[in-house]
Amino acid sequence: MELDNEADTLAAVARGDADYALAPTGIGYYAIHQHQLRDMVALSPPLLERRYVFAARHGRADLVARIDASLERLRASGTQNDLYVEWIGNLSARKALPWPAITGGVAALLVIGGSTLAWRRRRRDSPVVQYAGQNAALLAELQDAIDNDRLGYQFQPKLDLRSGRWLGAELLVRWDHPQRGPMSPEEFVPIAEQARVIGAMSLHLVRCGLRQRQQWPAADPPLHVSVNISANDLADPRLVDAIIARHRQDGPGLMLEITETDVMREPGLVAEAVPRLRAHGIRISVDDFGAGHSSLVNLRRLAPDELKIDRSFVTSLLDSRSDQAIVTAIIGLAHELGATVAAEGIEDDATRDWLAAAGCDIGQGFRIARPMGAAQLATLLRAQA
């Protein structure tokens, strides 16, 4: 449905005429407040933010350094984004705007640019609806599972589409919660990212992946285990050091699949981390390319060894000329950059054949191999050897 204004768009979802709507962040929150749409829920945090400017009076040059330092602390800690979400969610034409105070005693007006969000009608049984208390308890249980090695995983093999040989596998996190039962990553990974627990989980999974990698047979080219990690985790030098140390101890054969589920907060630090990782034999893959926050600027920063085409372009590939054009362009771009191309979500032979003919190097999906346990994967790889 194409409507004339954002408020009508959100109202259509509230009435049940549509399943979800796309609306700019600020307008979306404002319309929800003005129209009392209490059964609406945002499906994502703000995607983009713009730089903003402060002015200081002559004679108060000391404020410049204080403001810069405060802003840096806010940005690095994620508080800036949290303040923005809290502020924009309380927009009101009937009362004063609750501008936040900046850490370090510097009061400032945060003017952060709008973006596009998806909104959907809140359902009583919707897994999107979470409360702070529930999140806090879940995070504590997740941290306990990490600390006590109770966080599970499976592997999905990766296939060379030309030779038909296995190239390794991607580690997929799994969590069998003691009370809630099996939980999908979508239920706990976003919460872990928001609470900055994702780094500890990523390091744990790197350790698990490399430990299992030692059970795989020797191969030429070497088999790689791929582990997903947030781009923002690479901005943490201590985590990068820990990954390098673990790879030095248990490697080789590690590939980090960089996911951009959030805005890259420290692009400079991420750009510094990548050559350090690569110098120690750790390969870089950009996951879900074309569907998240990936941009050509970030592609240049990461200089990946592999680009993974998001499954949303693969599942409808045979029926969509636009998806075919996009996939063909991604394959050409990756090869020009010296990277291999992997496609996720291959579920039939026709799609696999089309991708191979188009020059795609690697395939993953249910038609190739479903996720499996470590022992089953090791047996599969030894049979090839």
Results as ranks from 00 to 15, higher is better:
A61L: 10
L63C: 05
P24V: 04
L172M: 14
A325Q: 08
H204G: 06
V327Q: 00
R15A: 09
I27C: 13
D310A: 07
A219Q: 12
E187R: 00
H280C: 12
R165P: 15
D8E: 13
S115M: 01
T79A: 14
G199P: 04
Q34V: 13
P178Y: 01
R162A: 15
R246Y: 06
S163M: 10
T340Y: 08
L355Q: 11
Y153A: 15
G26Y: 12
N5V: 07
R301T: 10
R248P: 01
D4Y: 08
G281H: 05
N90T: 14
H224P: 00
Q249C: 06
A329S: 15
S44T: 12
L223H: 03
G89Q: 06
R162F: 13
E187F: 02
Q36V: 12
H293S: 13
Y29E: 05
D348Y: 04
P100V: 05
E344W: 06
E72H: 15
G251E: 06
D323A: 10
V53C: 13
D19V: 10
E347S: 11
H204C: 07
S126A: 06
I243Y: 00
S295V: 09
R278W: 01
E186C: 09
A21M: 11
G181M: 00
V240A: 00
A245E: 14
T259D: 02
E72M: 14
P190H: 05
D236C: 02
F188Q: 00
I330W: 02
L239G: 03
D125K: 04
A42G: 10
Q384M: 13
S285E: 11
T103H: 11
I198C: 00
D349Q: 12
A65C: 02
Q249F: 10
A12N: 07
T379P: 09
A93M: 12
R162Q: 15
D68I: 13
R73T: 04
T340E: 11
R123S: 06
E86V: 09
V227K: 01
A369T: 08
W87Y: 14
L377F: 12
I198H: 03
L71H: 05
S322K: 13
H33F: 06
L307C: 05
A383H: 15
M201N: 03
T340H: 09
R38A: 14
V41M: 08
Q143A: 05
F54S: 05
A342D: 07
K158L: 14
A140I: 09
D147P: 01
R301V: 11
A235C: 02
R150F: 03
E2Y: 12
S184E: 08
A101F: 12
A291G: 05
V225Q: 00
V297P: 09
I284V: 08
H224C: 07
A169I: 14
L377Q: 11
L318K: 05
L151N: 02
A342P: 15
D310L: 07
L269A: 15
V64Q: 04
